[in-house]
Simulated scan of single mutants.
Amino acid sequence: MARLDATAYTEPDWRVHELAKDFTLEDVWSFRTPGAGPDDFPVMLAAMRAAGGIDNQPWLAKFLFAFRWKLGALFDWDKPVLGSRVRSLRDRLPVDLPAASAGLNDDRLPLEPVYELEREAVGEIANKTVHALMHLGWMQGDGGDFELRMAVLVKPNGSFGRAYMAAIAPFRYLVIYPALTRRWEQAWLDREKLLAG
């Protein structure tokens, strides 16, 4: 895993650019997928889905997610607001960009799928803290192999949302992203086994 400069997200001609102009880019990361070719993005997504979600993360990441959901329940942060207070990105999709039916969903991290193409996919989540997008893209890396890239885009809910994003940043960088990286990079290496069963 490597954290990338913002241009790694802004320079490629992703379809999400036309839909998410009012979101702020928070992070861009790359994930190693040795031997991957230009047509392997659907294989990578399938392997990630098969590898499982939060419950298959290391104990510290699971603990942080559980603690966060407890706080959310206590302070009523996580009531879904897509379609009520927050307009879904799906409502912005042009006619030539069909909505996705499957995403990288996990019951404890309910990312709603927005769209999925041959080399990019978007999921979203909205609650009382933030409206966030996870953009996954498939790009050729410096070594010639294709690699997965993840961009996180956010629209915080006022000053509380901005404070929330600042408060969770150390946990994202020190625990969540490294755990996610190990899981996704291992899913690529184990893809044949994961997708055979």
Rank of each mutant, 00 (worst) to 15 (best):
M1E: 00
M1S: 04
A2Y: 07
L4D: 03
A6T: 10
T7S: 01
A8G: 06
E11I: 01
P12T: 01
W14Q: 01
W14D: 00
R15A: 11
V16H: 04
H17L: 09
H17I: 05
A20M: 09
D22A: 11
E26D: 15
D27P: 12
V28I: 06
W29H: 12
F31R: 07
F31G: 09
T33C: 15
P34Y: 14
P34M: 14
P34Q: 15
G35E: 13
G35T: 14
G35M: 15
A36Y: 12
P38T: 13
D39W: 10
F41V: 06
R49G: 11
A50P: 07
G53D: 03
N56Q: 08
N56L: 07
N56G: 09
W59L: 15
L60A: 11
F63G: 10
F63P: 11
A66P: 08
F67H: 12
F67P: 05
W69M: 14
L71P: 10
G72T: 14
F75A: 08
D76I: 11
V81G: 15
V81D: 14
L82W: 04
G83L: 14
G83I: 15
G83M: 15
S84C: 14
S84W: 12
S88D: 14
L89R: 11
R90C: 13
R90E: 09
D91T: 14
D91Q: 13
D91I: 13
D96S: 13
L97K: 11
L97P: 10
P98H: 08
A100P: 08
S101H: 02
S101D: 06
A102L: 12
G103R: 00
D107N: 06
D107T: 05
D107K: 06
P110T: 03
P110F: 01
E112Y: 00
Y115I: 03
Y115S: 05
E116W: 05
E118N: 03
E120P: 06
E120K: 05
A121F: 06
A121L: 05
A126N: 05
N127V: 03
V130Q: 10
V130G: 07
A132P: 04
L133K: 01
L133D: 02
M134G: 13
L136H: 08
Q140G: 08
G141K: 04
D142C: 11
D142N: 12
G143A: 11
G144V: 07
L148P: 04
R149M: 04
M150H: 02
V152M: 09
V154P: 02
N157C: 13
N157V: 13
S159Q: 10
F160N: 00
R162T: 07
A163L: 14
Y164F: 05
A166E: 06
A166G: 05
I168R: 01
R172S: 12
Y173G: 09
L174Q: 03
V175P: 04
A179C: 03
A179L: 04
A179K: 01
A179Q: 01
L180C: 10
L180Y: 10
T181F: 06
T181P: 05
R182E: 03
R183C: 00
W184I: 05
W184D: 09
W184C: 05
E185H: 03
E185V: 02
A187G: 07
A187R: 02
W188P: 07
L189A: 12
D190C: 07
D190F: 06
D190S: 07
K193T: 15
K193E: 15
L194Q: 15
L195E: 14
